[in-house]
């Protein structure tokens, strides 16, 4: 419920937005899709981020920089050619066509609903999140998800995705095309001399918080990419997903294993 919202601010710069936020009682508005699911918004004002020029995707020497207000639609349409296409896939499969025209990457990182498809993708890509304001800093994605630094006087401004010369694979499972996913899995693999050199596996939607699987990653490193041991090691993965009326723990945990094995088959 937004009945308390009485003021609307349209700053034209990040500094302008932060100075309104400092006064308190206001919240940022990006895609706006998180405000209509019940729950009361106590803020009396909204700061519109749509005119801050934070909707862009730039290439730099080290990778891709994405403005916080970039919509899923624009990321889904962007031509990522290397492992970064994990993010393109995540954004093109999330929600629905009309919602992807609204939802922003920054809004998704600030609210992080358990069904969000952004955290797993960014974990597998080792992304960094830039924040301006009282918590101004660049956070590695894992630290960002653990510390949840958004404090009402900071703004997410940019997301950095390092160049990712390896393979990027992303899977999302939902019961119908437009439904919250029960599991999403992002796998990034670099292969050298037929062996797994770098591996990052991240899972989302089935635990309270998306996370990497460091033990499994460690055990897979150095194995030949076609090794039969990969499937055995993945089968041994112990993960304790939440269960719900539509998906049991066993079903979700099995899905993750199937997705990870499928990713290796795709690469091998």
């Amino acid at each position: 419920m937004l009945v308390n919202v009485k003021n609307w601010y349209r700053p034209e710069s990040v500094t302008g937005a932060l100075s309104v936020m400092k006064k308190g009682g206001v919240i940022p508005y990006a895609g706006g899709t998180s405000f209509h699911r019940g729950g009361k918004i106590t803020a009396a004002g909204m700061i519109d981020l749509r005119k801050l020029d934070l909707d862009f995707i730039h290439e730099t020497e080290s990778g891709t920089t994405i403005g916080a207000c970039t919509r899923f639609k624009d990321i889904a349409n962007y031509d990522f050619t290397d492992g970064r296409k994990i993010l393109k896939e995540a954004c093109s499969q999330a929600a629905s066509t009309s919602l992807r025209n609204l939802i922003t990457i920054g809004g998704s990182l600030s609210s992080i609903p358990p069904w969000s498809n952004i955290p797993a993708a960014l974990l597998a890509l080792n992304a960094e999140i830039e924040i301006a304001g009282t918590k101004a800093s660049k956070f590695g994605i894992e630290k960002f998800l653990t510390e949840k630094p958004m404090d009402g006087t900071s703004l997410i401004t940019r997301i950095y995705i390092p160049k990712s010369s390896g393979f990027g694979i992303y899977y999302r499972y939902s019961k119908t095309r437009f439904d919250y996913s029960l599991v999403d899995t992002a796998v990034y693999i670099e292969v050298k001399d037929e062996k797994i050199e770098t591996i990052r596996i991240a899972v989302g939607n089935l635990l309270p918080k998306a996370r990497r699987l460091p033990n499994l990653e460690e055990s897979l490193k150095g194995l030949p990419i076609n090794s039969e041991r990969i499937a055995d090691l993945v089968d041994k993965l112990e993960i304790n997903p939440t269960s719900s009326s539509i998906a049991s723990k066993e079903f979700r945990s099995n899905l993750v294993k199937v997705f990870i094995k499928r990713a290796f088959k795709q690469v091998g």
Binding site: G32, M46, L99
Partner: peptide
Amino acid sequence: PVNSCQILTAA
């Protein structure tokens, strides 16, 4: 296409 129930008109 966008869902008009998800947009505040002021935006």
